[in-house]
Every structure is written in structure tokens, then in C-alpha cells.
Amino acid sequence: MSILSTRKAEKIDSLAEGGTSLAMDALRRTFRSPVAILGLVIVGLFVILAIISPFIAPKDPYRPYPELKAELTPSNIPGPMPGFLLGSDQNGYDFFSRLLVGAQQTLFVGVFATLIGVAVGMIIGGLAGAFGGWVDSVLMRLTDIMLSIPSLLLAISIAALLPGSQWTVIIAVAMIGVPVFARLLRGAMIAQRSSDHVLAATALGVKRKTIVFRHMLPNSIGPVIVQATLTLATAIIDAAALSFLGLGDSDWRRAEWGLMLGNAQELLSVKPSLAFFPAIAIIIVALGFTLLGESMRESLDPKNRR
């Protein structure tokens, strides 16, 4: 390193002072970009909506209303009426309330599908990265097999094998993420294994367990968090796709956007908004998570640091 660049580093150091951890630093960098802020706003509104929607929904999303039922025929689904902002759905339920509450169910599916994918993937990837050798080879062949199956096909196969329930959707979608998270964590851990600070810790006689859990894992987690954010977007879309294919939740009453979209597909000519609104909601939310994830990825990339 030349004298000049060392000088520069010293100066930047003093600027960084007062900051806390590297993660905080990365967060600060992330939210300098307007795209990240847009993503955060979308995700934030979605999460708030998911939490408060049962309390602010004007009507009960889980029961038919006689006012709506009265006008409901196979070829006519009532549109907006006083008290029912978006009219009825195909069963005489309040569509607007169902759309609001749908945020909660959709977030639930997305979050749990992602969390299970992250957890299982991290166990596999963590073991492979920590032990290397044959453990690594076996586990990585396993993920290769999972990756070789197109993701939706994998989810469809699992969903088809299990009874149709919400957890089936969650597990099927989670499995798509498992090999991705496994590879990601394993790759990051392998890079950590040959890093200078792990070598330095080894030179100090630090125990293997400590090296893995304190030195390798925390430094490998960044890309996993980014990928999890991006996966939330695809998980919501994949769950919707399963529902659309009739492989999703068998409880048709549940207000979940994917399910609502799936159940609306035969009614496109009768009342297109029944499909349109859930679809738009899914797209916006998926976009929010993607924007957020991509900006985080950018700011965590060492090449873009500072």
C-alpha cells in the first residue's frame, strides 16, 4: 500500500468515528439512495397494513353480507355500493375488507416461507462451510439436485404431495429458497475461512467453535439477509402461483392475495377487479422487497463501500 492511500484511509477513519458497528454503517449507506427509501416505504406500509388491517377493515372479511348476496348472480357480482367500497366478491363477502386483511395473510405466508428457507438453508450451508471435506461435498450435491429442478416445479411437486393447507404452501415455497441460502452461506463461509482475520484468530489458538460462530458466521450473514429480503418478494409471488394453480390453501375463505387471485381466475369476464387488485397488491409489495433487497446488496458490496 502506498503512503498516499494510507493517509487517505486515516482521514476516512476519523470521519467514521462516532459510528457504531459495520452493520449500522452499511444501513446508513443503504438509505442514502432514493430507491432504497422507496422500497422501505412500500415494505413499511405493507407491514403496518398487515398488522392493523383486522382493526381498520370496515366489514368482517369472513362472512357474507345479505346486501351483497341479494344482488349476486353467477353472471353479476355487485360493484361498489354504500358501505362496500369495492363491492362484493364471488361469495357475497366485502371485497375491500378482504383485500385489506389479505396483507396480513400474505405477509404471514411470505415471512414464514422465507424464514423456514433461511433456517434450513443456513443449517445446510453452515455445516458445509464449517466442516468442508466430505460433509461439504454431500450437502452441496444435495443442493445441486434441488437447484437442478426448476423452482416452481419443485414447489408444485411438494405441494402436490402434501395435503392442501396454508402450511403446505409455506413449506413448498420455503424449499425453493433452501438451496439458494445453503449455497450463499456456504460460499461466504468458505471465503471467510481463508480470510486474514480468521487466519489471525487461528494463529491465536482460538477454538474452532468460536471461530465458526464468532468469526465466520457473523461475517457471512450479510448476503443471506439481502437474499432473504429478495426472497420475500419471490415467495409471495410463488405462493400466489401455487394458489393460482389450485395447489394452494384448500380453505377458499381465507383472505390471502394469492388465493384471492387464484379463485378469481374464472371470474375475469364477470368482475376483473377481483383479480386485478390482489395482483396489483402482490406486484407492488414484491417490488418493494426487491428494491430494498437490491439496494442493500449494493451497499454491502465491498466494491461499493464508501
Binding site: 486474514d196 482475520h197 487466519l199 487461528t202 494463529a203 491465536l204 489458538g205 464468532r214 461475517n219
Partner: peptide, 25 residues
């Protein structure tokens, strides 16, 4: 046996002080 000795009997200082420290702790 080596791990028990490293750091206690033999120590080492590397070239690059930034990358030799764990950034997250």
C-alpha cells in the same frame, strides 16, 4: 495441541491490520 500453543507460546502479527481484525466484533 497446536491450538493450545498458538497464542499462548507463539504469537503472530500480520501485515494488514485492518483485515486481520474481525470487523463485526
Amino acid at each position: 495441541q497446536l491450538r493450545d500453543r498458538r497464542g499462548r507460546d507463539l504469537g503472530m502479527v500480520f501485515q494488514d491490520p485492518l483485515s486481520s481484525l474481525n470487523p463485526v466484533i
